[in-house]
């Protein structure tokens, strides 16, 4: 539990302070190591909020959280992958 909290703090601080790919690699590692690491969504939100550029989605308007969506997709993919791996 303590390691999870510590890792979460490191992950969030890395999103603010380190290069984006360091946070990305930490997120992927964390997703493999911990179950349901929802903190990665915060990582995406922080990086997109700090530097992200919105894209125009025809009927939905401007969407600014592309990196967050990518991390959510990776989150789902790794969760499913891990489940299959255990079986």
């Amino acid at each position: 539990m303590l390691s999870r909290i510590l890792f979460g703090i490191i992950l969030i601080v890395s999103a603010f302070a380190f290069q984006w790919w360091i946070s990305f690699l930490l997120s992927v590692f964390g997703l493999f190591y911990f179950n349901n690491l929802y903190e990665v969504i915060f990582v995406g939100v922080i990086i997109d909020s700090l530097y992200g550029k919105g894209i125009e989605i025809s009927f939905l308007g401007n969407f600014n959280f592309i990196f967050t969506v990518i991390l959510i997709v990776i989150f789902i993919f790794i969760s499913n992958f891990k489940k299959r791996l255990l079986i």
């Binding site: 939100v45 922080i46 997109d48 909020s49 700090l50 939905l60 969407f63 600014n64 959280f65 967050t68």
Partner: peptide, 14 residues
Amino acid sequence: VLFFFGSNIKNIVQ
């Protein structure tokens, strides 16, 4: 939440 309150979240993070 990101879609509807995105700009508020951005302000808080910044």
